[in-house]
Simulated scan of single mutants.
Amino acid sequence: MKVIVSGGGTGGHIYPALALIKEIKKTEPNAEFLYIGTEKGLESTLVKREKIPFKTINITGFKRKLSLDNVKTIIRFFQGVSRSKQLIKEFKPDIVIGTGGYVCGPVVYAAAKLKIATIVHEQNSVPGLTNKFLSKYVDKVAISFKESQSFFPKEKVVYTGNPRATEAAIVAEKDRLTEMGLNRHKKTVLIVGGSRGARPINEAFLNVLKEAATRDYQFLYVTGEVHYDNVMAKVEEQGNPANMRIEPFIHNMPEVLKNVDLIVARAGATTLAEITAIGLPSILIPSPYVTNNHQEKNARALSDHGAAVLKLEKEMSGDILLKEIDNILLNEANWQQMHKAALKQGMPEAGKNMYELMKQLT
């Protein structure tokens, strides 16, 4: 099997693509892959690190307001389609898969016009512009949340889940807490705001740092690299509590998730796929700065079923955060209820589902 994958801009589009490639390789070790992205996007770093063949096109996203830049984007789109057709004809794929982000627009559109099997994968409960546009041309639309199916042609939608869930479910369990100087036998809450961190979450936690230091459970606190130095300075001022480990960033997050009892996080699609795959209770603080407020809608898909506690950023304070953590970690019945509810929302077989959908089309 020869597969072209395209998706970029954020880890939420890239990590599911990489997880799918790993899933295909398990069944078809001789499968060949080409990843098409942009040179400046995050995919350039992440895909190259996995040693997957990588080619680029030049494309930018649309501005949501009227702008002359959108004219340039249209020109780049058609240039990207031409470049994509060239790459497709050279590679001769059996199927082309887009996982979102504007880079996959020209790639998947070009493949559809060349009559090659195509799938787009939507991670969020509210789809982005690119996937909504591509849904008119592709053979199938794979979704991760049932809430997103109404945005796409009904006959094309297949509920597969997010392939990142499979990766989280099967990752080997390692004692990452001891590696980081924490006690593996203590209950642990992971606080993380995404790869770049989230200042409101950081500020809320720092405001109750002294009280948090009195808890019997422990904290693994991931600040985001841009906030790390500032956070560490404030932590040092307050005595550097012994029940905390503070990191700027963590690679291979699925390994860490299997070592903790609770996560406080944004509500990105990849995070939710990972935590539901292993039944990890969560306190979700959606980013209000994303397109169509999709993170809040992602979070409600869990909180409405008792799998998560949802707190809007405007409602959040350090006292509220610590109270919610206590209510879950210090109440075994609450934890078990959320754990079971999260598992029910999980799709650990998502990678297999995507692979089977691909096989149907090739």
Rank of each mutant, 00 (worst) to 15 (best):
S195E: 07
F54T: 06
K65Y: 09
R196M: 10
F91W: 12
V171L: 09
K156P: 02
A117N: 14
T160P: 05
T99E: 04
F54Y: 15
F91M: 12
V138N: 00
A142Y: 07
A172I: 07
L66N: 08
G193V: 04
E167R: 12
I170L: 14
H121A: 12
K51Q: 15
N162I: 05
Y159I: 01
R164K: 14
F151N: 02
A110P: 01
V157K: 00
V158W: 03
S148W: 03
E50M: 15
A169D: 09
T178E: 15
V103I: 14
A112E: 04
F145Y: 15
E167H: 08
F133E: 01
V171M: 14
D139M: 02
P106H: 11
K63I: 04
V171Q: 07
I170C: 10
V192L: 15
G100E: 08
D175K: 06
S144E: 09
V103Y: 07
D94E: 11
E173F: 07
G105K: 03
E167W: 10
V107C: 06
V141C: 01
A112C: 13
F133I: 06
P127K: 10
Y109E: 02
H185C: 04
F152H: 03
I119A: 00
V141T: 02
I97G: 01
I116Y: 08
Q86R: 14
S150C: 03
K92M: 11
V126N: 09
A110L: 12
A110G: 09
G161L: 04
P93C: 14
Y102C: 11
Y159D: 02
V141H: 00
K92I: 07
V108D: 00
K140A: 02
D139I: 01
N131T: 03
A168Q: 05
V138G: 00
V189I: 13
I170R: 14
D94Q: 08
I52L: 15
L190Y: 06
I88C: 06
T178L: 13
P106C: 10
D139P: 02
L177V: 06
L182D: 02
G181T: 08
V120Q: 00
N162F: 06
K146W: 09
E50H: 12
S135W: 04
G80M: 07
E122V: 07
Q123F: 04
V120G: 00
L134A: 01
K186G: 04
G194L: 12
Y137I: 00
S150N: 12
T118R: 00
F145A: 04
N162P: 00
E167D: 08
D139L: 03
S135P: 06
I59Y: 11
T166P: 05
T118E: 01
G98I: 00
L114V: 04
V103Q: 10
R196H: 06
K92N: 11
R184E: 12
T73K: 03
V96D: 01
S150T: 10
V96K: 01
G193M: 12
P93E: 14
L68M: 13
K187S: 12
E179W: 11
E173Y: 04
T73D: 08
D69T: 15
G80D: 09
F77L: 15
G193Y: 04
G128Y: 02
F54P: 08
S84L: 14
S135L: 10
V126L: 15
I119T: 01
